[in-house]
Structures are given as C-alpha cells and as structure tokens.
Amino acid sequence: MAETLAPSTAPELGQTQGGGEHGPDQGTKRDFLKLVAGSFAAVGVGAIVWPFIHSMNPAKDVLALASTDVPLGHIAEGQAVTVMWRGKPVFVRHRTGAEITEAKAVPLAELRDPQPDGARVQREPWLVVLGVCTHLGCVPLGQKPTDARGDFGGWFCPCHGSHYDTSGRIRRGPAPSNLVVPDYAFTSDTQIRVG
C-alpha cells in the first residue's frame, strides 16, 4: 500500500497544505519568494480571465449596429407604428390633441417616476419610446387600435399588469420607471432616425 511508501520529508499530515516549511534557516527568504511568485501567478490568472469575460460583451459589429430610419408621413393621428431597433420594438405614436393635453395635465407629484411630458417629446405630436416594459421586458399592448391601453390611455403590459399613460409614463403596476425614450433625431419634418 502507498502508506508504506510514506515520503521521508513529508510535512506532518495534520498540517494542511502549505508544505515546504523545511530548513528554518532559509524560511523567510523562501516565503518571500513564494509570496512574490504567487502574486505574479494570481495577477496572470486574473489578467487572462478578463478577455474571456469581455468576449461576452457586445461585439464591435453589434455596437456599431445601424440606426433605423422611420418615415412619419403615413402615420395618422391617433395611430402608432412599431419599428425594430437593436432587436427591440420602438413605439412611434402620433398623439391626438386630447392625449397631449392629458399627458401635460398630470401633476408630477402623482407620478412614480416624475418626468414632465415636455422632457419626453422632441416635437409634437410625436412620442417615441422603447416598447419594452421596465418591469421585466415584455412588450406592452396599445399599439393597435383594438389593443387594451390600460387605465391611462397609453399602454398596458399584459405580463404583470403595468399601466402607462399617453406619455409612456408608469402609472400603476409593478414597473419601476417610465418607458425609455431612445436617442433619436428628426432628419426631416417627416422622418426620424432612431439611434
């Protein structure tokens, strides 16, 4: 059996790893060397882990992904279109006068995530928001005329019952914040570029 071969210079079994405490005369020098070598090894391993982790971040082509142009001309008052941008839906809504008035009339104190309508809209009557519920990422209903729009006339998320108003602000339900307004710009009076 292997025990019969118990090595002559083995450190006492009871002491766990760390062996190599031989020769007290050289103990400190060796320990210092070991410390330096060990630190080097730790730094090396740490440095090599980063490329692996970073490889899971969005790649360069994903980051450079094209912006999306949305022509507005064909969207009638009261209607909305959904366009795809970065793999997610963007809601572009041509709001009615009543909806705009309603959105502007809400006192900020009533809002969970207080934000005036003016800060969410670049040019009336267009509201542009990411169609992603801020709760857990479902796409809220309210784009089609037949959809339920919730209690505040904006959007209603069917997954867990969040209600958004005509400015895309959270009014009721579990979602913590308003629908996100993406970066966009008017490239002409009838076209926006998202991204």
Binding site: T9, G20, H22, G23, Q26, R30, L33
Partner: peptide, 10 residues
C-alpha cells in the same frame, strides 16, 4: 527560484 529553494534540501 522557488523551485530551487524548495528542492535545495533534497
């Protein structure tokens, strides 16, 4: 260097 130290007593 660490190897040399550890093996020194062998």
């Amino acid at each position: 260097a660490v190897k040399r130290k550890i093996w020194a007593d062998v």
